[in-house]
Simulated scan of single mutants.
Amino acid sequence: MIRHLVLFKLNEGVERDDPRVVEGVEAFRSLDGKIPEIRFWECAWNISDRPIAYDFAINSAFDDADALRRYVEHPEHQAGVGLWREFATWVIADYAF
């Protein structure tokens, strides 16, 4: 199994209630069930207020690297990524478990 973690940081001046952010969050929340390669899916706003904290996180799992690649290339995932590019940056970690 491959764990796929993504941490998002909203750009300076962008708030959680910004309509673009609301649309981006919904785009990612809706992926579970749309992309068959997803084995585990959760995403949520970070509750920490520490200055080094990121704002939003995705924690997901896939059977193998090929399944993860198919997910990354899937049009629904790419549509969500396109939305988030407008208002955030992110870091990713993928590891086998």
Rank of each mutant, 00 (worst) to 15 (best):
V72S: 06
I47L: 14
I38K: 00
F56G: 08
A27P: 00
E76T: 05
H74R: 15
F56Q: 07
P51R: 09
R85H: 13
A53N: 11
D64H: 11
K34W: 02
A65D: 13
R50A: 12
V81H: 04
N59E: 11
S30A: 15
P36R: 12
F62L: 09
S48I: 01
R69P: 00
D49W: 01
V72Y: 14
Y71N: 04
D63L: 09
L83C: 02
A27E: 08
F87I: 11
K34E: 11
I38C: 04
D32M: 06
H77D: 09
C43M: 14
Y54S: 07
R39E: 14
A79C: 03
Y54C: 06
L68W: 10
F40T: 13
D49Y: 03
G82Q: 11
H77G: 10
A57Y: 13
P36K: 08
R39D: 09
A61R: 13
N46I: 02
F28K: 07
R69W: 11
L31D: 04
R39I: 04
S30K: 14
D55G: 06
R29I: 01
L68F: 14
R50Q: 08
I38E: 15
I52S: 11
N46F: 07
E37R: 00
A53T: 12
G82T: 06
A67G: 12
G33F: 14
N46M: 04
V81N: 05
D32S: 14
R69K: 05
E86I: 08
E86H: 12
F87Q: 09
I38T: 08
R70P: 00
A79M: 02
L83Y: 03
A61P: 02
R39V: 14
K34C: 01
V81Q: 14
F56E: 01
F40P: 00
E37T: 10
A61E: 15
N46L: 09
E86D: 06
F62T: 11
E76K: 06
D66N: 09
L68G: 04
Q78M: 13
F56S: 06
S30C: 05
G80V: 09
P75H: 05
I52R: 15
Y54M: 09
F56R: 08
V72F: 13
L31C: 07
A61L: 09
H74F: 05
E37P: 00
V72T: 12
I38A: 12
C43V: 07
A44H: 10
I47G: 05
R50P: 03
F87Y: 12
G80W: 04
D55W: 05
R70V: 10
I35A: 03
R39T: 10
F28V: 15
R85E: 11
S30N: 11
E73W: 00
G80Y: 05
E42M: 03
F87E: 11
S48H: 05
P51Y: 06
R69M: 12
F62Q: 07
S60C: 08
N59I: 15
D63P: 04
A53L: 01
L83A: 01
D55V: 01
